[in-house]
Computed example of a mutant assay.
Amino acid sequence: MNEKKPVNSSNLVIRNAVVDDVDTLRDVFRRASLTNEGVRELFAIHPEWLLWDDAMMPFTRVAVVDGRVVGFASLRPVDGFLELEDLFTDPDWMRQGVASALIEDIARRGMRVEVTANPYAIGFYESVGFAASGFANTQGGPAPRMHLDITRARP
């Protein structure tokens, strides 16, 4: 594992994804997905769920520290709001502020953001300004729907 530096504005860059990022995004997606023990059984039944859809690349922002992609978020425009399809952090960089920085980047757009949240991530989403707005039926079962309250999101 590389030595971590605290993520801050001086060593974190958020930019649009490029074709050269695809393999890294797939790797981060897969490894980060497997960090939640509670969903590993579902992934064993549905290994195809561990494959990142690179069709999302035009809608993806990546977080980079010292030239290394350490996280990403994919947002799809939908009827006047943005649907947060992906928010993943490299497991080596979890709890270092990467996902929060990505949400701050998204909030700067000033648009409503909605997400079908992983139940294990509800606390995180609430901490960055998301509020519950119901449930959605997914292939993995019911999941919370949340929206970003732009007035509460971090500047």
Score class of each variant (00 low, 15 high):
99 A>S: 15
133 S>M: 12
91 P>K: 11
84 L>K: 05
119 P>H: 10
7 V>P: 01
52 W>E: 13
70 V>Y: 01
74 S>T: 15
17 A>L: 09
72 F>W: 01
110 G>D: 13
29 F>E: 04
24 T>P: 04
105 D>K: 01
89 T>Y: 05
28 V>A: 02
109 R>G: 15
52 W>H: 10
63 A>E: 06
51 L>D: 12
60 T>R: 04
128 V>C: 06
47 P>F: 08
73 A>V: 12
76 R>L: 14
118 N>R: 04
31 R>L: 11
128 V>W: 05
54 D>R: 08
1 M>P: 10
126 E>M: 07
129 G>I: 08
17 A>Y: 07
132 A>T: 06
27 D>K: 15
113 V>L: 03
113 V>K: 02
4 K>Q: 15
58 P>K: 10
126 E>V: 13
57 M>C: 05
39 V>L: 07
111 M>G: 00
12 L>Y: 01
35 T>Q: 13
68 R>G: 01
69 V>K: 01
140 G>C: 03
28 V>Y: 01
105 D>N: 13
108 R>E: 10
72 F>L: 02
78 V>F: 06
52 W>T: 00
112 R>W: 05
76 R>S: 06
118 N>V: 00
148 L>S: 12
24 T>A: 13
86 D>R: 13
22 V>Q: 11
67 G>S: 03
108 R>I: 00
97 G>K: 12
45 I>Y: 02
80 G>V: 04
